[in-house]
Nucleic acid binder design. Structure first.
Lengths: 239, 239
DNA sequence: TGTACATCAGTGAACGCGCGTTCACTGATGTAC
DNA sequence: TGTACATCAGTGAACGCGCGTTCACTGATGTAC
C-alpha cells in the first residue's frame, strides 16, 4: 500500500492486484444483482459462480459468506438510490421548493422502476434470517437528508408555510425532536413531522406500484403518483 | 354430497371424510403459516410435512403443488385482514366517520403486527416466480371497500367535507371514474381520489414499521402511526 | 538485475444437507345393491 | 343387514436436482534483499 516500488506503467505494483480484485468484486456484485430477479433475496452463490465461470468456492476470496454479499448489494442499492435522488434534486433551482420535492419523488420512483429487485431488497419484506449490519445505516439515510434540505431551505426563506400553532402529540414530538437534533438541524418540528409523513407516502406509493397492488386498479401510474406527491407537498407546506 | 344415507350420528356418511379432509387442510395451512416466519415465501413442503408427522408426498392429496398452498395462504391472509377490518369498523357508530377511519387503520396495523409474515406475504415484495391467480382478487379488496363505505356515508350525510371545485388531472380522473363505477358507487371523484391516497399512506406506514424502516428512527410507533392517520383523515375530509 | 520467499486467486473434491414431485402400493373407509 | 366393490389417505422409494461452506492444493504474481 505505501510501497514506493513503481511498475513500468507508473503505478505501484501492489495496486494492480488490488485493481483486479476490485474489478472482480464489482463483477460478482453485478451478476448477483441480475440473480436477484430470479431468486429474490434467496440468492444462490453457486449460480453466481457459474455465471462468472468460476468454481463456487472461489467467491469466498471476495465475500466471507452469502450474507456479506447480500450486505454489499444492499449498501450499493442505498447508495445508488441516494445518488439518484441527490443529483436529481441538485439540478433544480434552489428557490423552487415544489420542483425540488417532485424531483426527489420521481427520482425514487424512476430508480425503483429501473431496478425493481434492488428496490425490493431494501424496501420490501425483510430477508428471513438476515440481519443488516450497521454500515447500511448511513447509505440508507441519504435520501431523506435531501428532503431535510428542502425543509430547511424553505424554513430559512420563509417559503415553507409556517404552522405556528401546531402541536404534536407528546410521544410524536419526542421522536421528532430527537430526529431533528440528530440529523435535521434548522427544521421546525411540525415541518419535520409533516415531511416524514410525506416520505412514508412516497415509499408507500412506489411500493404499491411495484409490488402489484395497483394491478387492475390504477392504469396511469406516473400521473397518479405525481397527483399523490403534489397532494403531500401541499400537506407539508411546499408550494 | 346429495346422498340421503345417514350416519348413526345423523350426518351424511360422506361428510365425515369431507370434514376430516377439511380439518387436515386447515392444519396443513396452519403449519405452513408458522413456517412463513422461517422461510418467508420460500416455503418448504417437506418441512411442513415433517411438522405434520406425515410423508412429504401425502401433502399432494391436499394441494396440487407448492404454489397452490401459497395461494391458499394468501387468500386466507386477505380474508383474515378483511374480517378484522370489517368487524373493527362495524363496532363504531355510523355517524363517527373519524372513529370509523381510525378503527380501520388500527385494525390493519394490529393485524399486521400480530401476523407479520402473513402481512409480508400479501403486501411485501412479490414472491419470485409466483403469479397470483385471479381468485385472490376479491378477498384482497375487502379492506378498501370498507373505506369506500365511510366515504359514501360521509358524502350522503354531508359530513365529509365536499370539494366542489376540485379538478383531478385527466388521467387520474379516468382511473378514479372507472374505479368508482366498478366498486364505489355514490362516492364523489375527489373523495375517492383522496381516499386512495390515504389508503396508500396507511399501508406505507405499516410497511415502514414492519419492514424495519423505523428502526432507530421512530420509537413511539403507535402514536406516530395514529398521528399520520389523523393527518390523512384531515386531508380526505373526514372529521 | 536476480533470486528466494510470501501472498493470494482459483481449483476440485468432499461434507452434509436440502428440495419438489412422481409413482406403485397398502389398507382403511364409504357406497350400492 | 351383509357383501362386493370403489374411493381415497397415506407410505416409501426413487428421480434429479439444488445448496453453502471447508480444505488441501497448484501455480501465478508480487515483495524483499
Amino acid at each position: 500500500m505505501t510501497s514506493m516500488t513503481e511498475h513500468s506503467a507508473g503505478r505501484p505494483a501492489a495496486s494492480i492486484r488490488a485493481r483486479v480484485r476490485a474489478e472482480m468484486t464489482e463483477e460478482i456484485k453485478a451478476i448477483a444483482r441480475r440473480h436477484l430477479a430470479v431468486d429474490g433475496a434467496n440468492l444462490s452463490l453457486r449460480a453466481v459462480a457459474r455465471d462468472l465461470g468460476v468454481v463456487s468456492s472461489a467467491l469466498y476470496r471476495y465475500f466471507a459468506n452469502r450474507d456479506d454479499l447480500l450486505t454489499a448489494l444492499i449498501i450499493d442499492a442505498y447508495n445508488a438510490l441516494g445518488t439518484a435522488v441527490e443529483s436529481a434534486e441538485a439540478a433544480v433551482p434552489r428557490a423552487d421548493l415544489l420542483g425540488r420535492w417532485l424531483a426527489v419523488c420521481h427520482a425514487v420512483r424512476d430508480w425503483a422502476l429501473a431496478q425493481p429487485y434492488e428496490y425490493a431488497l431494501i424496501y420490501g419484506s425483510p430477508v428471513p434470517g438476515y440481519q443488516a449490519p450497521t454500515d447500511t445505516v448511513a447509505p440508507a439515510t441519504r435520501g431523506v437528508l435531501v428532503l431535510g434540505g428542502i425543509l430547511r431551505d424553505g424554513t430559512a426563506s420563509g417559503a415553507l408555510s409556517p404552522r405556528p400553532g401546531e402541536r404534536l402529540p407528546k410521544p410524536v414530538r419526542a421522536d421528532i425532536v430527537r430526529l431533528r437534533d440528530e440529523a435535521f438541524p434548522g427544521v421546525p418540528e411540525s415541518a419535520l413531522a409533516r415531511g416524514m409523513t410525506g416520505w412514508v407516502q412516497l415509499f408507500g406509493s412506489v411500493s404499491f406500484e411495484l409490488f402489484g397492488q395497483y394491478n387492475n386498479v390504477v392504469d396511469h401510474r406516473r400521473e397518479f403518483f405525481e397527483y399523490q406527491m403534489r397532494a403531500m407537498a401541499g400537506y407539508i407546506g411546499i408550494t
